[in-house]
């Protein structure tokens, strides 16, 4: 089975074949390895690669796999060939207009810019409060505020549209 595995923006071609139960031949970008993979706990893989023991905690997320190895996070997307061609077609992106979205759930406690106002990159657009800390949401570009999509007091969800700067 061939997968396209993306880690930190870099895509790798990975071919996985099952040799026997829990034993795999894995070819990563042309380099072949034999992996003994045991699922030891609900989300933990114990991996033996050339005798070296590794532990990877793997959970599935809507946007890929969340992997934790020795305290460090690896967010990985895995797609097979069929899915990959579908994704490729949808990858065209608009430029120039910056939609600012909430990176975390929170409450809008202040709005610092209004539609029509010129802002510089790094200038505060609004202030979100989450977990008792205030975070100033800044403009990513020099431009004009086209829209403020929220009001003071609104609770916003992660990913929700906050403002548009062009």
């Amino acid at each position: 089975m061939i997968y396209y595995v993306t880690l930190a923006g870099k895509e790798h071609v990975v071919d996985v074949k099952e040799i026997e139960a829990d034993l795999y031949r894995v070819v990563v970008d042309g380099v072949e390895q034999v992996v003994d993979a045991q699922k030891s706990e609900r989300t933990v893989f114990s991996l033996l690669v050339n005798g070296r023991s590794h532990e990877a905690n793997v959970t599935e997320q809507p946007n890929g796999l969340d992997i934790l190895i020795e305290g460090d996070f690896y967010n990985v997307t895995v797609i097979d060939e069929r899915r990959r061609s579908l994704v490729r077609q949808g990858e065209m992106q608009a430029e120039g207009t910056q939609v600012i979205t909430a990176q975390m759930p929170g409450k809008v406690v202040a709005i610092l810019a209004e539609p029509g106002q010129r802002v510089e990159a790094g200038q505060g657009i609004l202030v979100l409060e989450a977990m008792k800390m205030e975070n100033e949401i800044k403009s990513p570009i020099d431009g004009e505020v086209k829209e403020i999509a929220v009001e003071v007091g609104n609770t916003v969800e992660s990913g929700q549209r906050l403002a548009v700067v062009e």
Binding site: V16, E18, L47, V49, A56, V58, L65, D72, V76
Partner: peptide
Amino acid sequence: EERTHDDIALLAAAVAAFRRD
């Protein structure tokens, strides 16, 4: 971000995806 086990993460991801599929 500092990741010292990219290689292991790739193997884990591929094996996990394979087993899931």
